[in-house]
Design a protein around this nucleic acid. Structure first.
Lengths: 192, 192
DNA sequence: TCATAAGTGAACCAATGGTCCAGTTAGCGT
DNA sequence: ACGCTAACTGGACCATTGGTTCACTTATGA
């Protein structure tokens, strides 16, 4: 099942250059201050090329995150516990949240840019849908009487880039993990 | 302490017209699809006037919410319990969250427009700062060992306009109140 | 080597937030 | 009642930027 159409060598090179330039500019200048044209210039290509390859500004931002997100999804489905299947739901939930927090903190700039470029996609996009389904499912499994769907949204809401950005800047992202654990424990543990 | 400078009558009339037009357009067309110029036309004034009065698009959006927000703040400070002071922190927190949810659901369109126009202001703005301080304070009062600051952000994060919008559209905003209650109860109640 | 389809990029377009400034007018002092 | 003035007004204008177009180039496979 090799790709039915190889990508031309120069195209691949340009795509890589664009992604690299975009990431660098985003990290050093902050999201929202980088225009598509700047990215194109920094990558040494024309603006038309960027749009041809990525469709839109949002498409470019999405592409920046794509592989990192895919790795997580694979780990969740086929990887070893506690991220993968095989342990109680509460443990998997905690592991998943840790992993997502890690992903988010390591890529704040990219995620912020993505959220800004496609605000509606945050909830409508494939990635969010998938994460939310996973989280809701685990909550339901652990405590069926809760409103898992809504709690899923609230939990994932803690990963909004603006909050994560704030924590990253103040240098201690451990608090986010810790507090999410606290929250999940409070919710899922059977109380007397 | 009367106002040192009265607002000219025509200016007041125009300001009211602009606010009314903006609200109507926002509600019927959805945020992000209404340009300042459209608002100006609908209000029967020039675009320059809008900017003169409100400074910027965000300023206009902020003005739309200003009085409703002020009413809540007054109720919190001087109003009767459980919103005002005089009862245990947990009760005040629940009452406050209910009030904010009510405010948010009744004004989704406005709030969404505001958040879209000034994303950075969501956390940096006076309103959020105030709400967050209030919530954190109450959490600290109830359970000093928790990371109240962060929990405050997470709790208020549940009021992001995109989530509220989703709930309003599906017609049952009661779930949000209920789930927030559940969350707060889990967190603040002393466990065995 | 040649044909061709994919790839490229600079000029162009439309939308829109924001600025400018010459003209208008409400409201005050006389 | 009358003007004076500062506030107000609004439409023309500007700059930025996401996105489109299309004539031209080039990698690749036969």
């Amino acid at each position: 099942m090799a790709e039915p159409k190889r990508e031309r060598a120069d195209a691949a090179r340009n795509r890589a250059a664009i992604l690299r330039a975009a990431e660098q500019l985003l990290v050093e200048s902050g999201p929202g201050r980088v225009s598509v044209e700047q990215v194109a210039r920094a990558a040494g290509v024309g603006k038309g090329t960027v749009f041809h390859r990525f469709g839109s500004r949002s498409g470019l931002m999405r592409a920046l995150l794509e592989d990192r997100v895919r790795l997580l999804a694979e780990a969740v489905e086929k990887g070893p516990p506690p991220l993968g299947p095989g342990v109680p739901a509460a443990d998997r939930l905690l592991a998943f949240l840790d992993a997502v927090v890690d992903l988010a903190t390591r890529n704040v700039a990219l995620i912020a840019a993505y959220e800004e470029a496609a605000p509606e996609e945050r909830q409508a996009g494939d990635v969010y849908q998938y994460w939310h389904r996973h989280v809701s499912m685990l909550i339901t499994e652990a405590r069926p009487e809760l409103d898992a769907e809504l709690l899923g949204h609230i939990l994932l809401g803690a990963l909004h880039s603006d909050l994560v950005m704030h924590l990253v800047r103040s240098g201690d992202t451990g608090r986010l993990t810790a507090t999410l654990h606290e929250l999940v424990r409070s919710l899922l543990v059977i109380r007397s």
